[in-house]
Design a protein around this nucleic acid. Sequence first.
RNA 1: GCGCCCAUAGCUCAACAGGAUAGAGCAACGGACUUCUAAUCCGUAGGUUUGAGGUUCGAGUCCUCAUGGGCGCGCCA
Length: 581
Amino acid sequence: MDFASVFCKKPVLNKKIEADIFRTLRYVRSDKLKQILQNLLDEALTEIMKSEGIESDIPEYTIETPNNPDHGDFATNIAMKSAKIFRKKPMDIAAKITETVKHPLIKSAEAVMPGFINFRISDTFYQDIVKKAVESDEFFTSDYGRGRKTMVEFVSANPTGPLHVGHGRNAAYGDSLARIMRAAGYDVHTEYYINDAGNQMNNLGKSIYVRYLELLGRDVEFPEDGYKGEYIIDISKALLEENGGKIAEMPEAEAVAMCLARGLTDITNEIALTLKNFNVDMEIWFSEKSLYKSGEVESSLKYLMDRGFIYEKDGALWFDSTKFGDDKDRVVKRSNGEYTYFTSDIAYHKNKYDRGFMSVIDVWGADHHGYVKRLSSAIEAIGYEDRDFNVSLIQMVSLLSSGERVSMSTRAGSFITLDWLVEEVGADAARFFYAMRDYEAQFDFDIDLAKKKSSDNPVYYVQYAHARVQSLLSKAENEGIKFELCTHLDKISSKEELELIKKIYDYNSVLEQASRGRQPHRMAYYLQELAALFHAYYFNNTIINAEDSELTSVRLSIAVAVGNAVRNGLGLLGVSAPDRM
RNA sequence: GCGCCCAUAGCUCAACAGGAUAGAGCAACGGACUUCUAAUCCGUAGGUUUGAGGUUCGAGUCCUCAUGGGCGCGCCA
């Protein structure tokens, strides 16, 4: 079975299924030592099975870095997992395996109750970690994704108003995920889908038009479902200033179109600026309207028709999504001849795959979850068997103002803008704040907390670790202290240092976990743990010692390794790593 | 009514594909600046992981049911 066909049997809807697939594949870890251990264990187990005359597959087992240092540097549950096959006690199997497994990097292997095997690793391995982390940022990347061409589509808010703090969560998540997956070896591109077609656009144009007329003193009625925000009036004012009352003289349809065009440009530019200030790297802006212009909406519908997934009923065209497990079939062309939003979305996703994306991730608000099944059905019907499709449903952000829940509505014009938040607490703090939450958990955004507690934000704790390292380096330089990075690393011996280095080593598996689970928050937590270890280390040990250049070299090397980890990790979250604070 | 997500310390949240003694921050209390930046460190206290069953060597994690909260069920987007 080759990788692609297993990976993408059908559109994958949640990370659980994805995890199953990875298990089936016996994913080859990019992490070298774990790879070595896995090979050794596989061999040892095969050997034992042979001598016992047992024929069976090697069971799934894990190799992990235990939290408890008493449990060694690496631990595996292989013996417990294979107890059933052997019909023997896990401890007996573990004991046998420990006798068989031998490798220069393995200092000891110990079988302990209830059947774990704990490995202790040679010091040279950890010395090597420091060296690698100091010398190249490549240490903080992985080839886990194997260059798979992936799109992360996120934000994609309707261009009918400014982004609010709910969009902020989506933006922070999508951008961090893209950066993380890129670092984990995927070929990632980011994209914003602009819904510049459809009813809401007409609505927007009308809103601007009516405000325009109001500015001229005309007595007109504001549309009931129009956009009531202040920013609409700003657009009308700009139009008025530029061309006087000219638009009022035009036929209404033409006038509305003109208002719409201007509104769309202004709002989209505004959104782009907001994202830029939020340190979000959006590469492609994709217009929905362009899909109509290019004929792709029609052609993709025809594509599905030819494959027999479309039928006619009550004067409308329906997509047979129940065939793929959806609750009901969905309309793709209304009886009045108009396409639905769903239809252009099908075309859009076909377009994504046609552009060569093997993997597509959509980041949506959780209120759209009812939409997932129909789209994944359509993608399945399109039939790219080797592709996969995932949706990250970001749970809602509710605003908490003095204990009260406030709902956000673009149409009613009541929302806290992302711009406001960034101005209030800064992009770094805001990004980290968002990054700390798992996307599946609801998020109560406490406005008072954001304003008041900006200096309590853990982001400063992490950034400070980086600033400390930089300050150590510049001090050593300024005072002419003799040191040479990555020398005398054999002097590393203290428990504290080893613990810190192990944490640096963990960076890679955190990166892979965050990528696999599409969970950037893991990186945020990891960075706090790493910073905590470093701050303690710094406090208990004098790093720069003018009398002892060897010791200084060792400690500065560790510090620089930490600093590099922090800088890289913060970068993945779109947070800066200042040299001074 | 049907479907999706969530429930862990007083509060906000973690817990790596089911692993060993469930961890941080804030808040509380007690300590550490003649020091490489105290935006720091050390210590104390805080838990029947909402409840009841089940699966197994092992469950916060998987399954079933219940309770509570959020969201969704259009020829809207």
